[in-house]
Amino acid sequence: MKPLVAQTRIELALTLRNGEQLLLTLVIPVMVLGFFGLVDVLPVPDGVADPLDYLAPGVLALALLSTAFTSLAIATGFDRQYGVLKRLGATPLGRWRLLAAKTLTVLVVMVLQSAVLVAVAVGLGWRPALDLPPILGGVVLATVAFAGLGLLMAGTLPGLVTLAAANGVYVGLLLFGDLVIPHDSLPGAVADVASLLPTAALAQLLRAGFDGGTDAGAGPWLVLLTWAVVAPVAAARCFRWD
């Protein structure tokens, strides 16, 4: 237990101390939520009465993406490049406890950012009706999928390439991932492809869950489940520790 606790504590401290990571995981989501919650410029999809009902779950999904994918990929990519992973592999900590520590760190950061974002959204007038199964199911599957993609990138690319690519994917998903721009505003063919993105599926499940249990249908579950299987398997097969 002691090595795992110590490693988790240090991973958490290093994450929370890192300005770029905080910008990505907290400042940008809060700014997106605050700005578009106050300034009425974004299109709202058909059938949504309050724009916040669309925006708030989308920004929560963005926040999860920033932590479980972008931040994890960048941190792990540099750990690998600087030989940190390799050196820890030569201690009694071992690889599995190192992975567990990184998972716990992601979970703690996600709880912190969700608390802040929900508070901001409620402050802006968001009044969700909770239905937990799609929320919890979506979050668990999406975390596994995002972390799998992040580790796949970190375990195969050089640190700086991972930094650039992870940020690029973050911006791409911000625009095309059904997080703040509704898919019915995109050209039809683009929207069809984009609905297969893991963020789109997560956002749909969150919106259903925060809307008192409207049925999201089987589509997003299937999409997210596929990502949650394929990404970690690919990461486990391709990951290089040094």
């Binding site: 240090i10 600087y82 030989g83 940190v84 390799k86 201690t91």
Partner: peptide
């Protein structure tokens, strides 16, 4: 105990 050539220590620790 192992002391690798490249340090292997996190930059921020």
């Amino acid at each position: 105990g192992v002391m690798p050539q490249d340090g292997g220590v996190h930059r921020g620790i």
